[in-house]
Design a protein around this nucleic acid. Structure first.
Lengths: 338, 338
DNA sequence: ATTGTTTCATGAAACGATTCATGAAATTTC
DNA sequence: GAAATTTCATGAATCGTTTCATGAAACAAT
């Protein structure tokens, strides 16, 4: 690859403006400088089209103005949404985002974490699955959905409230016997609270409920079998299902369809995440919507916080309910697809 | 934010190994060095857990080992897929990816392009919409889907072949009268060839066809009106539709559904992109699949190419057909959603 | 044994920013 | 008006690499 033609340096600007090097540095960094000096320097910067060299800056200050974001992938609409919102929040603060897709791979996760120690980024925001990630305490690290111990803030939706909300919505929709379906990491993480919240909601609303819980890696057929066991004479024992993610809800809907059941006529389904197809504002299924914008904003706020001692250990942000096919009230992102 | 505790430097390694600074540099960079020297240096590196400082490296060499990727968003499954594949391709070469979401915004696009001149990245891979982006010729820049002139390679699917393939598939499926629906940027870009390819396919297979072409920003209702005009006595004039993207196909399917038409019984629909919901391997609709893995690989190959003079101006990669709901033969990405 | 050639470790200089001790100029004080 | 104080531009030193001119050591040729 070609080396980019040599750009003007601060020294060039200083010569052009007839001031000292340090003065240019101050102007560039917005530090107080005599008015007439500032004007001359700014003119010179303009004239030479000067841009700071971020390597040199980083070498001296150990700051890159960039944050690494660790996500499993960008396929899952929830992750895609997070990536987008984090990008926006970082951009607002003139930070760059390094997106790292870990594919749920613990080794990759650890490698990226180590990056921060090579001073390659100023901090990390990670949605990770490695149960024993090694993170230096008091490193600028913020997790999403996984509480890793004091000193490492965790930002999550209010998963418990979300679970409860799902139960209450099902009750509102007239359900009498419902089921909770879950598949995913067996790790202790915040989303696990969806179950407890749901159970509590069922108790409060006197809903009869069952659980079917699979672990990551278990064959999906576990759910199919479960549903078939509860399927008699063309009717399902349940009139409502709460799936732990929209992804699962989406797959379960396909199964139900293949069994000749109609959603939502025969059975209500509520997922979790707020996944929107093509980001066009219409939800894939009825869902508990995670506030990805607020999550992103909070993560960025925390990762850039100066006084790391005062960072809260766990932040839970409020969720909301949206029914399938409806459009969110947030303006949909620009969405030309070609 | 806290400054990371000072890490060992090359000088420390040199002292520890009892060799000169330059020798350490050579070992680190894999340049030829006496065997006994190499061993001592490697031992010292191991012992001190030395990591090169990438700022210092960048300052001297003007290389960051990072590439900026410009995409409108990560919502659209096609863009999400590209992001993922580019990340993989870059990772293989130990490059980092800076993902920049431009939201189709010309100003943002230009700003990111300017970044390369600040030496913030070693190159750019951009899927952009700004018709008059200013790119220094012979800058390590590679576009996706938009040919910007000689010296700036463009990587795209074989959109013409894809269009033709869509027509042929519709013919194979027994269609007699079809329509092409398009919305998107009015820019001259590679995807525009989908139309010509489709027309050609229709001619070859003696298919009767019509076109409905909207511009970006035009109200979507244009399509609804078009379909209604061609809807009489519960029947549509067309038995097949080719939509320029899966996104559009998805929306059109909703409209058809609301008109009481069934897909694919009453009307066949083929989209373009190969969008998969949740990346679970099953296609959202029948579609012409873009080879995102090959596109990503080619983009990375080209952007990192040493001799920029020999880069091809336009690379078209083969597409394939997949019918809706089917699963791709490529192993689906790991997909725990929680 | 002497000279010529090759090999290769050495370490100073450079990259371009930040920082800070220095002292000139401006301002205040008595 | 002189002395004390404050203000603030200056530019050398520094960060941790890469690069390259230098010359010592090893080897070859005569």
């Amino acid at each position: 690859m070609k080396k980019i033609s040599s750009a003007p340096t601060m020294k060039d600007v200083a010569r052009e403006a007839g001031v000292a090097l340090g003065t240019v540095s101050k102007v560039v960094n917005g530090l107080p400088v005599g008015e007439n000096y500032r004007i001359r320097v700014e003119a010179a910067i303009e004239k030479l089209n000067y841009q700071v060299n971020s390597y040199a800056q980083g070498l001296k200050s150990s700051r890159t103005h960039s944050i690494a974001v660790l996500l499993p992938n960008t396929f899952n609409p929830f992750f895609a949404d997070l990536a987008h919102q984090l990008n926006l929040a970082l951009q607002r603060r003139r930070y760059k985002m390094l997106l790292c897709c870990t594919a749920f791979n613990p080794t990759e996760e650890q490698e990226y974490i180590n990056m921060v120690r090579q001073n390659k980024v100023d901090g990390i925001i990670g949605l990770t699955y490695n149960p024993d990630l090694v993170v230096e305490p008091d490193t600028p690290y913020v997790t999403i959905d996984r509480y890793m111990g004091p000193g490492i803030p965790c930002v999550a939706s209010d998963n418990y409230a979300g679970g409860q909300m799902a139960a209450e919505k099902l009750a509102d929709l007239g359900c009498r016997k419902v089921a909770f379906l879950r598949i995913g990491s067996s790790l202790t993480n915040e989303p696990n609270k969806r179950r407890s919240g749901f159970e509590n909601g069922c108790l409060v609303r006197h809903l009869d409920y069952e659980m079917k819980i699979l672990d990551d890696g278990d064959p999906f057929d576990g759910f199919v079998d479960f549903l078939k066991e509860h399927f008699h004479n063309g009717k399902l024992d349940f009139d409502g299902l709460f799936c732990v993610t929209d992804n699962l809800a989406f797959q379960i809907m396909k199964v139900l369809e293949s069994m000749g059941l109609k959603v939502p006529e025969d059975v209500q389904i509520i997922g979790f995440d707020g996944a929107r197809m093509f980001g066009d504002g219409s939800y894939v299924c009825s869902t508990i919507v995670q506030p990805t914008d607020a999550i992103a904003e909070m993560c960025v706020e925390l990762v850039l916080m100066d006084n790391m001692a005062v960072r809260p250990p766990l932040v839970c942000l409020p969720v909301s309910y949206a029914s399938g096919g409806t459009t969110s009230d947030v303006p949909s992102p620009e969405n030309s697809g070609i």
